[in-house]
Design a protein around this nucleic acid. Structure first.
Ligand SMILES: [Mn+2]
Ligand SMILES: [Mn+2]
Ligand SMILES: [Zn+2]
Ligand SMILES: [Zn+2]
Lengths: 143, 143
DNA sequence: GTTATAAATAGAAATCATTTCTATTTATAT
DNA sequence: ATATAAATAGAAATGATTTCTATTTATAAC
């Protein structure tokens, strides 16, 4: 937690009860979470937070590298904690339990140089969406 | 064109003037196109098509493998022609002129087996969003 | 060519996630 | 303690996408 609060300070964000509460939620949950779901979870913990505030906080946390945005096929917004923003990596999403796991691997430079050569283009960004069944859900499914 | 109409028939879709008109648009344009933009382009060609019909047609064409859906960072829907749906490949999007180019390359199996080993998970789907400047826009920019 | 049929379409309306706006409150530096 | 900019709530707006239904149309069978 301290680690993340420090990051917020670096980005000149104030440490507020709402920001802390949202952070705590993500530290506890391995699943990706959506704005409304977050609102309800905070309510259960007796903290009323307006939806616009939640949207704003999520954006700020993402901008600071603390959260990753997940573009769900439903086209709704979800977020989950990114535990290692420093190195280039990806995230594996379990389509059954919605768990998000770090994938400390990225071979994008291969595609990137293929494109730069073949298309004579300049590659700027990439994002990889990887979905499947996590170790637990995989077993459950085969029974 | 004939090739794509055949695909539609395989999928038991009727060959209608709207479907043909939408297809023609994509055959001419290298850019990705959005639903409303498509409506306007068809209007200019004197064909009135309702927005719901356009959304439906685009989904059908995507489901048939003729178009690729593009998840823009604005979170709006765009589509472009996929010229080779058979082999596993990706698409390069120019962030300046919106051109979409085929990338006949996919090294996803490396990440996939990394994940399956490291996380003991089952990988099911992946999609890669690659953005940058195409050969033309790259030059313009450096001037 | 007719006809029967399911599929396709238009247009109005609804949906609903997300964003905007503004008055009020709060964290924090001094 | 105080000043200040930042954060927040809540109401309202937005706007892309979807739903619904009556009407039209492509197509296959005759
Ligand atoms: Mn991460
Ligand atoms: Mn393609
Ligand atoms: Zn799982
Ligand atoms: Zn370009």
């Amino acid at each position: 937690m301290e680690k993340y609060l420090a990051v917020l300070k670096e980005h000149h964000f104030k440490i507020t009860p709402r920001r802390k509460a949202v952070l705590e939620l993500f530290l506890r949950e391995k699943r990706y979470l959506g704005p409304y779901e977050i609102k309800q979870m905070l309510e259960k913990a007796s903290l009323e937070v307006g939806l616009p505030s939640i949207y704003r906080i999520l954006e700020e946390l993402e901008g600071s590298g603390i959260l990753v945005k997940i573009e769900h096929s439903s086209r709704r917004l979800y977020y989950s904690l990114c535990r290692n923003p420093q190195v280039s990596h990806h995230h594996f999403i379990c389509s059954k339990c919605n768990k998000v796991e770090e994938v400390e691997f990225c071979n994008f430079s291969e595609i990137s140089s293929f494109i730069e050569k073949k298309l004579n283009a300049r590659v700027q960004h990439h994002s990889l969406h990887i979905e499947g069944l996590c170790s637990e859900c995989r077993v459950e499914n085969s029974s």
